[in-house]
Design a protein around this nucleic acid. Structure first.
Lengths: 346, 346
DNA sequence: GTGAAAGCGCTAACAC
DNA sequence: GTGTTAGCGCTTTCAC
């Protein structure tokens, strides 16, 4: 029942060599006689020996393991980041300790402690924003840290984000080009660092066009927040509406709220999201959105972290390009004056 | 830059005790003088000492870590399972090594090897179905294994699933009660173990009602498969349609395909899903579905595993109850004869 | 090219 | 009640 795994010692005995020699074979050292190497490899195969990464880690003082803390794996934005991260990590032979913080700061703190105990070589935090306490913990973290999707809490901690300002600008400009004049921006959760940046991009576009207004309502990054925002706006105003949403989930929630209110999309209201999650093609109507390269964000985090593990001092914020994907949820406002409505297109 | 972490030795020196005593304090042994304990605790606090789980694992020959392999974290079904799993694991002081296999069997195999190297104490595989090679690997796995959402490949490996047969039955019965007579079942991916069970449940309901037919079309568990299935069916037949879908993603895809074909839901076609992912409330119309208790599945897996870690021999398949949630995507077929259409309701 | 031996940080058995 | 010690499985000098 408990057949106690073979150790390096078993391999050494079976191959009639010393433990040191087994290690040399394992690490591919050239200073081993081919016949010896063959004997060792055979013993390894016969015994189905797998070196203990635990013992190795103790000896080497590094685990070749990194921690990845995700605020909320339920948010469809993150799984794609995780995939990019895991793929890249695997290529480098790094194990990934994935932890889902479920949007709970305490849980996030405990994850951090756990990862520290497990002696991960580095930590990546993928979150919409860091809380103060978290930021402090990360600053004094004993191993390299990389942030994904949130601002860096410290100049020495690198961060990977999207070009949110350009994204916000694209979204607003798209609606403006269609002829919309009264835009509504549905914010993300208060702690999301990128919300103000996206909003600023949208403001830029609005400012540079004649007679365009931009209202702002709070959201929470979830379906329900989008729905609530749409309700509030439809109650207060009259169509046509033009919504720029913090993310796709918010946008889907908003479309739901608009439908509830009996409004047609894109007839009475245009809606634009952010992220380009898989679902956007399948909503009714399909959602126009600003696409983030989620997979690349995960991959990039690993690349940065790899350089840090090699001892290089990396810092600064890296912003990946975004692009607009036009689908059915945005259109010329009903009752608009056709092509002439486009006043500021470049 | 590399301030070398404090070890138990540092704590011992600072508290002027032996390392053994520090261990005793750490493990809460009663055989320690209160004043000594206090000195040790202070030293720990001052040095910010965190015991190395690596060294401890080497010594104890157990890591208090379990591996959780998820076929595809992109499928919204799994994150909820993961949450239930992580919450329960944390309560037991178990670390979770989460691995996303991205539906790639090779990756799954490599994850398994990695987890073995890292010496996890147990492994849980959450997947729609196991491939043969995987099943073999699990059978001969050196530590306890629990399966979630797929059939057990071996009588000694416990599995946690939902009561899929009842779910299939409920779904079909609901449509029959509404007056539908020609049902279409959209299958999941071929490797999904539960597809035939759910189908069998639906068949049972269909058989026990006069004049009800049940057609079957292939799906793949994804949005695109649902869309393709809907296209095929709408081309071949005439409304009203009644779709039972393997899961919610399939159902959302199917609704998309139906809309494309110009059909109204639920006017021309009723659609019912399986899983009850968060999104179902927000589709247009909201999706009727058979809800699985995903969180409980994750939690249950940990409970089982905990008993196995305690040396208990656990086996057998456990099936958790499901329930029907009626929303807007299902309705009486247009042109049906009203209440009298309900012939077999109990 | 290979072996011997020390030691990574921890716990548990045995002294006292 | 506390100290001492061996050893978990591995890698890496240092000899030869």
């Amino acid at each position: 029942m408990k057949p106690t795994r073979p150790t390096i010692r078993d391999v050494a005995e079976r191959a009639a060599v010393s433990r040191g020699t087994v290690t040399r074979v394992l690490s591919g050292s050239p200073r081993v006689l081919p016949t010896t190497r063959a004997r060792v490899l055979e013993a390894i195969a016969v015994l189905d020996y797998q070196p203990s990464s635990i013992a190795r880690a103790l000896r080497l003082q590094r685990t070749r393991t990194v921690g990845l803390i995700v605020t909320d794996i339920t948010n469809p934005f993150y799984p794609e980041v995780v995939r990019g991260f895991e793929d890249a990590a695997e290529r480098l032979g790094l194990g990934v300790f994935l932890s889902n913080a479920a949007e709970d700061p305490d849980r996030e703190a405990r994850s951090l402690a756990l990862l520290q105990e497990r002696r991960v070589d580095a930590v990546v935090v993928a979150a919409g924003g860091l809380r103060h306490r978290q930021a402090d913990a990360l600053r004094s973290f004993p191993v390299p840290v990389v942030i994904v999707n949130a601002s860096s809490p410290d100049p020495r901690i690198p961060a990977v984000l999207s070009d949110s300002r350009a994204g916000g600008r694209m979204a607003a400009q798209h609606l403006i080009d269609l002829g919309h004049r009264r835009l509504v921006y549905v914010l993300g959760p208060r702690e999301a660092d990128e919300t103000p940046v996206r909003l600023e991009g949208a403001r830029e576009a609005a400012r540079s066009s004649q007679g365009v207004t931009l209202d702002v309502v709070q959201g929470d990054g979830h379906l329900s927040g989008g729905t609530a925002a749409a309700r509030a706006v439809t109650l207060a105003g009259t169509p046509p509406f033009a919504f720029i949403c913090h993310n796709d989930m918010t946008a889907i929630g908003a479309m739901h709220g608009l439908s509830e209110a009996g409004l047609g999309i894109p007839g009475d209201a245009s809606v634009i999201g952010f992220d380009d999650i898989a679902l956007t093609e399948y909503t009714v109507p399909p959602l126009t959105t600003v696409a983030q390269d989620k997979y690349a964000m995960g991959r990039r985090a690993v690349e940065i972290l790899d350089r840090m593990l090699a001892g290089e001092a990396v810092s600064g914020t890296e912003r990946l390009p975004v692009h607009l994907i036009t689908r059915g949820s945005t259109a010329r406002p009903s009752g608009s004056v056709g092509g002439s409505a486009v006043t500021t297109a470049r």
